[in-house]
Design a protein around this nucleic acid. Structure first.
Length: 553
RNA sequence: UGGCCUAUAGUAUAAUGGUAGUACGACAGAUUUUGGUUCUGUUUGUCUUGGUUCGAAUCCAGGUAGGCCAACCA
């Protein structure tokens, strides 16, 4: 089975580098900023970076890009570590850009000494104005002419806390007329008198992304520094710093970030949904966060498979949510325990079944798994079936229950509907049916063939459970590209709470189990669940060919 | 309207100058004690105009379209 899969462009580069002897082994890194929870887009990056390390016998570091103390928190660090682990990856080292602050500070001094950096006293407005525009070159101010000694002294004073936030910055001295705005004397250090989640109050100056990320890569000897497309214009600066500092030449490569339709994928927007209570938290099962997907019942396997299927390239993309659903259904079909739960019950009374009698039916836990075993479900005279599974005046090809029509009750008997019982309003209150004693599952001698098989629950044993059904968070394909506030496009019906009547075996389940409620979908226990109130999340529905068929015309 | 990146089926992604393929979706059928699963088949594509070449999705030039860049964010 040597199904050779074609390489993505990054794998091609790596194989070339390995073949040419440029590197003996590779080192990648996953570099999140701890200012929010990880989402499915990060999962793509995680699978890429760690996957590359595994595939080519290299290593991958987890490095927190924690250079902005005002937005970063330990809570986020912890959640990120949990999510990466849960996805199935182990990092070679856990690092923090803040581990390197001393070194990065020395790098800045090195630049100053080379006459390649200067302290600027301008306000941010002045700096912005002097930057020019994409069509107009920028201009340098008088501060650019400060001597090395003066810059050294001022920078040291910045570090020592002599100045207020925003009073001074350190800038790299590159080219104010570059067509690349990032090369127009970019700010590389700023003053922030803020408490850092790891370094505490040791520093009041912090390096900017462009003077921390590449340097951290270099310090760690990262060979392939993989990031998303929007960092392409940063690459010349990335290379400039490495060249001027004469440090290990890490190389940056950019791929297109993942976009999923009917959701948003920016931490800023997700944070808004959390803060403004549109969702219950970062791990709300409707969120595209890894923690949300986990709570929803997605498996790490399915997410890795998804990351694999979407591929890695350089063009912008908007992946259909359906692909993620396909991946999770495919995995859950193999592993999920089958159970029966009726959501919108109608009572069936088997008029020819002895009153007071109960028998036990045996049914497969998972027909896809030969070792899945069986379980017992009680059966008696009164059972519940789905109201949708009965129609008084059925259309053609309705293979379910209708007056005079026969169906199989899964792992039990074939029944036939004899009479519809209604109350004074005309609402159906019960169905009187007769069962065929010779049709018992396992030793059916009735010779009858029926088209439909229904799930059911014994009325006397039904366990009431809460089920949370989720739909897409947004009404539109690509909320980020719509006019106005993205929150105007939130789907008001993304959460529906319903009651289910479950077979008794569902009373004792554990948090990590995945279930398929027969003919309905895949479900898992929610963390809000208690012994008194059992709560399930619907991970995803089953494909429903009948729903599609009945919608036609 | 300066620079940079990108353009292959509905959505993604291969084909690395030599038969445009795969997955998801859609459609049709078979199987099925889940209208699930599985299996089979069908459908749909190289942005455009030139050029190079025996031969171009691929190389070159122009155009068009989309994206990114002027945070003391990353």
């Amino acid at each position: 089975m040597s199904e050779e899969k074609s390489l993505n462009f990054i794998e091609e580069i790596i194989e070339e580098d390995l073949k040419s002897g440029k590197y003996k082994s590779i080192l990648t890194r996953f570099p999140p900023e701890p200012n929010g929870y990880l989402h499915i887009g990060h999962a793509k990056s995680i699978c890429l970076n760690f996957g590359l390390g595994i595939k080519y016998g290299g290593k991958t570091n987890l490095r927190f890009d924690d250079t902005n103390p005002v937005t970063e928190e330990t809570e986020y660090v912890d959640s990120i570590k949990e999510d990466v682990h849960w996805l199935g990856f182990d990092w070679a080292n856990e690092f923090y850009a803040s581990d390197y602050f001393d070194q990065i500070y020395e790098f800045a001094i090195r630049l100053i000494k080379k006459g390649l950096a200067y302290v600027d006293d301008s306000t941010s407005e002045e700096i912005a104005k002097q930057k020019g525009s994409p069509t107009q070159p920028g201009t340098r101010n008088k501060y650019a002419d400060r001597t090395v000694e003066e810059n050294l002294q001022l920078f040291e004073e910045m570090r020592a806390g002599k100045y207020q936030d925003g009073e001074k910055v350190l800038r790299a001295k590159i080219d104010m007329s570059s067509p690349n705005m990032h090369m127009r004397d970019p700010i590389i250090y700023r003053i922030k008198h803020a408490h850092h989640h790891r370094t505490g109050d040791k520093w009041c100056i912090y390096p900017m992304y462009d003077f921390a990320h590449g340097q951290s890569d270099s310090i760690e000897n990262i060979t392939h520094s993989i990031c998303t497309l929007e960092f392409i214009p940063h690459r010349p600066l990335y290379d400039w710093c490495i060249e001027k500092l004469e440090i290990f030449p890490s190389k940056q490569y950019e791929f297109a970030r993942l976009n999923l339709n009917y959701t948003v994928m920016s931490k800023r927007k997700l944070l808004q949904l959390v803060n403004e209570k549109y969702v219950s938290g970062w791990d709300d099962p409707r969120m595209p966060t890894i923690s949300g997907l986990r709570r929803r019942g997605y498996t790490p396997e399915s997410i890795r498979d998804f990351a694999d299927r979407v591929g890695v390239a350089k063009r912008d993309n908007l992946i259909e949510f359906g692909l993620l659903e396909f991946c999770v259904r495919e995995h859950l079909n193999k592993i999920a325990q089958r159970r029966m739960v009726v959501f919108n019950p109608v009572k069936v009374i088997l008029t020819n079944y002895p009153e007071g009698q109960t028998e036990t039916m045996l049914t497969d836990n998972n027909p896809e798994d030969p070792n899945g075993g069986t379980r017992e479900v009680p059966f008696s005279r009164e059972i519940l079936i789905e109201a949708d599974d009965f129609m008084e005046n059925p259309p053609k090809k309705f293979f379910r229950l209708a007056p005079g029509q026969k169906v199989r009750l899964k792992s039990a008997y074939i029944i036939q509907c004899d009479e519809v019982i209604k109350d004074t309003d005309g609402t159906i209150t019960a169905l009187h049916c007769s069962y065929i004693p010779e049709s018992r599952s396992g030793n059916d001698t009735s010779g009858l063939k029926v088209q439909g098989t229904l799930h059911w629950v014994n009325a006397a044993d039904a366990v009431e459970v809460e089920v949370r059904e989720y739909d897409r968070l947004f009404r539109v394909d690509n909320p980020a590209s719509e006019d106005g506030d993205f929150k105007d496009y939130i789907n008001p019906d993304s959460l529906k709470v319903v009651t289910g009547y479950a077979e008794p075996s569902l009373k004792n389940v554990t948090a990590n189990d995945h279930f398929q409620f027969l003919r309905k979908g895949y479900y898992c226990l929610d963390k809000d669940s208690t012994a008194e109130k059992i709560i399930f999340n619907r991970t995803v529905t089953l494909k429903d060919a009948w729903a599609k068929e009945s919608k036609k015309k």
